[in-house]
């Protein structure tokens, strides 16, 4: 009922519609067959078949054609990384577009674990990331609640300041953050990074959470308070459970940001023992070695879990970010 699909040209020329549709179907089949013929005549280069099939789809079902095209653009670079991670060491630089390279091998993965301290990097990143996400959410959830439910002096300037923090150029913060962390004597410790990341994650988290709390009617807490709950009890019992989508979005955002960060980490972490994967992988293709195989293998391993988490949460993403912003 809320579909804009009614926009299709059908409404105007319903008579020729059937014939038109059939014509497009024939065209699609012709394109597919044409692609296949070119593939066979060009020594089985499947590129022609793929292009033919896609053009056919575009003609037959244009919307699917567009979505397939965009999905391919989104996915292809990822598939490429997977493909590079499977290449044998003597074929890393190759002009081949095959997704499964000739002589595919898991050697890069094995070497990543045996020759590098990959597990340690991932472990460090994981502890930092989980700590940041948890502490960040604890701090922002209560802060956002204050912004959402009370009118207190300094509220507006503070909210604007939160937005302002997003405008600080990252390189502006690097030296001061290092100075703080060095003075706290935390440069060879994950704590410094946890504190820095948490603080940078808080403003945006508060923003999102506040927007979400705003859509929850205050009557709900008041009802709970009438039942004898304290204000904070009402917050924990009523607001937090209702905000699950927003909380999980904030968790996801902070997780992703901390998991992938490297500029601050590069400045702060001064010890191999606390190296995160982003620094480790960066080093694999730095000035000294250019180990594309191991790098690609590592990229696949650190990306896949987050990717799955993200795809699994993609439904929540939509509701958590925008629910309630549009008032019908």
């Amino acid at each position: 009922m809320n579909s804009t699909a009614a926009a299709k040209p059908a409404s105007r020329s319903s008579l020729s519609d059937e014939g038109y549709k059939q014509l497009r179907q024939y065209g699609a089949v012709a394109l597919l067959v044409g692609g296949l013929i070119l593939t066979v005549t060009n020594g089985m280069s499947w590129g022609y078949a793929i292009i033919g099939a896609w053009l056919g789809l575009l003609l037959w079902k244009p919307l699917h054609g567009i979505l397939v095209f965009y999905s391919a653009i989104s996915v292809y670079p990822v598939l490429r990384v997977i493909s590079i991670s499977l290449r044998p060491t003597d074929g890393l630089l190759s002009r081949s577009l095959d997704l499964i390279p000739p002589g595919a091998t898991f050697n890069s993965f094995v070497e990543l674990f045996t020759e590098e301290e990959f597990l340690r990097w991932v472990w460090n990143s994981l502890t930092i990331t989980v700590a940041v996400s948890l502490i960040g959410i604890a701090i922002s959830a209560t802060g956002a609640y204050a912004f959402s439910r009370w009118r207190f002096p300094g509220r507006r300037p503070m909210l604007i300041f939160l937005l302002t923090t997003q405008m600080l150029p990252a390189s502006m913060l690097l030296i001061p953050i290092f100075v703080i962390v060095a003075q706290l004597n935390l440069t060879n410790n994950v704590l410094g990074l946890v504190l820095a990341y948490t603080s940078t994650a808080v403003p945006f988290s508060i923003w999102i959470l506040k927007g979400y709390y705003d859509t929850i009617p205050p009557d709900l807490e008041e009802a709970a308070m009438v039942d004898g709950c304290q204000r904070m009890e009402a917050f924990y019992k009523v607001i937090l459970p209702l905000s699950t989508p927003a909380l999980s979005i904030v968790f996801l955002f902070n997780f992703l940001a901390a998991w992938a960060e490297f500029l601050v980490a590069k400045v702060i972490l001064q010890s191999n023992a606390v190296m995160t994967w982003s620094l480790g992988l960066n080093e694999l293709i730095g000035t000294f070695n250019t180990d594309w195989g191991k790098y690609a293998a590592g990229s696949v391993l650190v990306t896949l879990p987050v990717l799955l988490l993200f795809m699994w949460q993609s439904k929540y993403l939509i509701s958590g970010l925008t629910l309630g912003s549009v008032k019908g």
Partner: peptide, 23 residues
């Protein structure tokens, strides 16, 4: 405003330490 200020305190401290101070 005791309660809202209290709720905001941790966020303010974190932001002060790593955002306001660098600024």
């Amino acid at each position: 405003h005791a309660l809202p200020f209290t709720l905001l305190a941790p966020a303010i401290i974190a932001i002060t330490l790593f955002m306001v101070y660098p600024l």
